[in-house]
Design a protein around this nucleic acid. Structure first.
Lengths: 229, 229
DNA sequence: TCAAAAGTGTTGAGCGTACACCCATGC
DNA sequence: GCATGGGTGTACGCTCAACACTTTTGA
């Protein structure tokens, strides 16, 4: 921290990698740019940080303004500050990633007359700026996170079956899991509440519904329980 | 990414949490502030990001200017952007943490006529700004990192004994480890090179020296070897 | 009655953990 | 010869991974 605040300043933005689960695929929400540079290209939703809001607030605001999403899981990912990441001038961006329940946010308002669309995470076009790199980092972070913390519930409806949960793990981690072992493991963590309800409208035996219990989870964390899958 | 770059901008700084191992203790390098606010208080070394340097370059430059340190392990930690973290005006800081071999950097030049000093990580005074919080986060990150990646070598001399390494783990993780198990585990990872040298100047049987082999490490990572301690 | 998925237990292998003694060296 | 740490092996328990069949339900 030096003596003056008068240096010329980089611009500061936030960008969000928004993941949603649309079985059988993990999707990312992108915005089509209507301005240069990269006009017409797809990019991560994001924008400038205002002086009177925290970084996380800025990310939430941009998410709301550009995609209509609110109250989603949001976590800081990394800050990107290479000198030439924006062709016009110096822009540093703080990247966040978000997890949304598509079941509860089906329609994403293309507010602002802007295009917004979900892309399969393995089927994303070349993005503007260094957003490809950010997306890749976010996906890796999600994979790691899921492996050690029960964060996947953020992508499922509040009530879900064990099969849905297993599919989520398989989709994100990109490998298949043994059904019996998975159930043993996940139930053994004691963070799922078994409900007296079963799924509806299926053409076969209906599966039991469960709900994640965050309070129980916090207790387990305190006790040092391991949530590795 | 919206239409204009003309928003008023937060100031952007980098701050570094510098760890060094000074057996039997882990230490942090702090700078005494000679300006308001928090004049006379201890703080993390850091300063403004210039327009023509990346964030990591800025962190390296500040480290060099304020502490004389060069060529150290450096990794981005987190970006702090609460509105009131600097009493004067809006300042966002990208925090880094660094690991240095005290054996090779014994003397830290207090360049700039500034006080610089090492503090035991459990014995740090109240710091300026939100630097307490940053330090805490960096320490946790180091603990986690060490648990899953062989990063501790950055704190030891290039040639070290297994005992030194074990002590390092014990100091950072803050628990004691079984000697035989530790040796089995760490040697089993096959990233240490056994040297034909032993430590000198000890009043008992001299221990063999080892060296970390980063190339072998990268191979092991590719093979999916687990480095959890 | 058929199709589809739900739900359930056991076994073997490998890994982590706990634990104690002899050895080499310098003084 | 003694004090100090260096260096080594084994046994047990637990967890992980592999694996297949019966049950339930709706169409």
């Amino acid at each position: 921290m030096t003596s003056t605040y008068k240096y010329p300043r980089p611009a500061l933005t936030v960008d969000c990698v928004v993941f949603g689960l649309d079985e059988p695929e993990l999707k990312v929400l992108l915005i089509r740019r209507d301005l240069e540079p990269f006009r017409g290209k797809w990019a991560l939703p994001g924008g400038f940080v205002h002086l009177d809001e925290s970084l996380e607030d800025a990310a939430k605001r941009e998410l709301r303004e550009e995609t209509g999403l609110e109250k989603v899981f949001l976590e800081q990912l990394y800050t990107y500050g290479n000198v030439e990441r924006d062709p016009r001038e110096r822009v540093v961006t703080v990247a966040y990633y978000a997890l949304v329940r598509l079941s509860e946010h089906r329609v994403v308002a293309s507010t602002d007359a802007r295009d917004a669309a979900w892309f399969g995470v393995h089927d994303v076009p070349r993005l503007a700026f260094d957003h490809d790199r950010i997306l890749k980092a976010a996906y890796q972070r999600l994979q790691n996170k899921l492996r050690y913390e029960p964060v996947g519930f953020e992508l499922l409806p509040k009530k879900f079956t064990l099969r849905q949960l297993q599919r989520l793990y398989e989709i994100i981690l990109d490998r298949s899991l043994d059904k019996r072992n998975f159930r043993k493991k996940i139930l053994g963590m004691e963070v799922l509440e078994e409900l007296d309800e079963v799924e509806a409208d299926v053409a076969h035996r209906a599966a039991r519904l469960y709900r994640f219990n965050p309070k129980r989870y916090r207790e387990m964390v305190k006790r040092g329980v391991n949530f590795e899958i």
